[in-house]
């Protein structure tokens, strides 16, 4: 068994499948600990990899949706929850997980080569984490995250709107930045502070960092011909953050926990709406707007005051 601590929560990976574990290793190794070192942290959930089992009897389908490169079917019965991953084109079952209603104990079977098994196992871990962590003031976000000077900034947007692109612009044009996670960071309210954690899930970018930072701001990215940034009111911020987390709306108890945590995050954070291009001025406008950077960079002995050239909210000529 492998013991991981993700966002201060204890996750148990239980599989004897050596090739699977080898493919899992790069993502999960940064979060793994000796069992004795995390004995004091209560287990959030365990995912047991087992032989193929019978489907859940009398299950009702609650939702089905595209989950990265698979089709995901979510079913529920009095006994618990069943999540099936299917091939996107043939709709053949390729992996299945069953767990109790509180997502604390789960088993799964997998098919295909080690890469496909890892893909499905890791997706199950991510879904279990998203649902189980909600009861612990913790949310799995869909965001790209940059840290600078001890604080982190989450970029939210619909897939394809340019979260990763915006992070890349910060890394290139704002000095002293680092990528925390590029797709699925974890946000938790800890001792009254909002903290963002790296995770073993990061979309197509290999960025599985076991690091955490206090959140400096959440920014929703919208494409526009000119750059501007506005801080949002609490109600707008709540409406903006709620759909950015993985959740199960049909499960009232969990959904309330998600709303509670989102409200706690909103009351402690600055949340912004950014309208921007996919160019350098976007990173400048945003980083200055959220207070991550004073706009002064230096290099090659020249000090360039970005602020005087490019104040936040003003359209700038495109770079040649």
């Amino acid at each position: 068994m492998k013991h991981c601590i993700i966002a201060d929560l204890h996750v148990v990976i239980d599989s004897d499948d050596k090739p699977l574990l080898d493919v899992l290793a790069p993502r999960y190794a940064p979060f793994c600990h000796r069992a004795s070192d995390c004995a004091e942290v209560p287990v959030l959930f365990a995912l047991h990899h087992v032989e193929r089992f019978e489907p859940l009897a009398n299950a009702t389908q609650m939702a089905d949706f595209e989950c990265q490169d698979t089709w995901c079917v979510y079913e529920q019965s009095e006994k618990g929850v069943q999540i099936t991953l299917q091939d996107l084109t043939t709709r053949q079952d390729i992996a299945q997980m069953q767990c109790d209603a509180s997502f604390s104990d789960a088993k799964c079977w997998l098919t295909g080569d080690a890469v496909q098994r890892e893909y499905c196992y890791s997706n199950f871990l991510m879904m279990l984490f998203a649902f189980a962590a909600m009861r612990h003031q913790t949310l799995l976000f869909h965001a790209s995250v940059i840290a600078r000077e001890g604080k982190a900034y989450l970029f939210l947007a619909k897939s394809g709107t340019g979260k990763s692109t915006h992070s890349t612009l910060w890394l290139k044009h704002v000095p002293g930045c680092q990528l925390v996670n590029d797709d699925n960071p974890v946000v938790g309210v800890r001792d009254g502070k909002v903290i963002v954690y790296g995770s073993p899930w990061s979309g197509k970018t290999n960025c599985y960092r076991n690091v955490s930072f206090e959140v400096g701001g959440f920014v929703r990215i919208n494409r526009a011909p000119e750059c501007s940034i506005q801080r949002q009111s609490p109600v707008s911020a709540f409406a903006l953050l709620l759909p950015s987390c993985s959740g199960v709306k049909w499960d009232k108890k969990l959904y309330r926990a998600q709303c509670d945590t989102t409200a706690a995050v909103v009351s402690r954070s600055a949340i912004y709406e950014l309208y921007c291009t996919p160019y350098r001025e976007a990173a400048v406008t945003c980083s200055i707007g959220v207070g991550a950077w004073d706009g002064v960079s230096s290099g090659d002995g020249f000090a360039v005051n970005e602020k005087s050239l490019k104040p936040a909210g003003v359209t700038l000529p495109q770079e040649p």
Partner: peptide
């Protein structure tokens, strides 16, 4: 939400 009342569908 921070003193504002909102209705959330569930």
């Amino acid at each position: 939400i921070c003193g504002e009342k909102v209705l959330v569908a569930e």
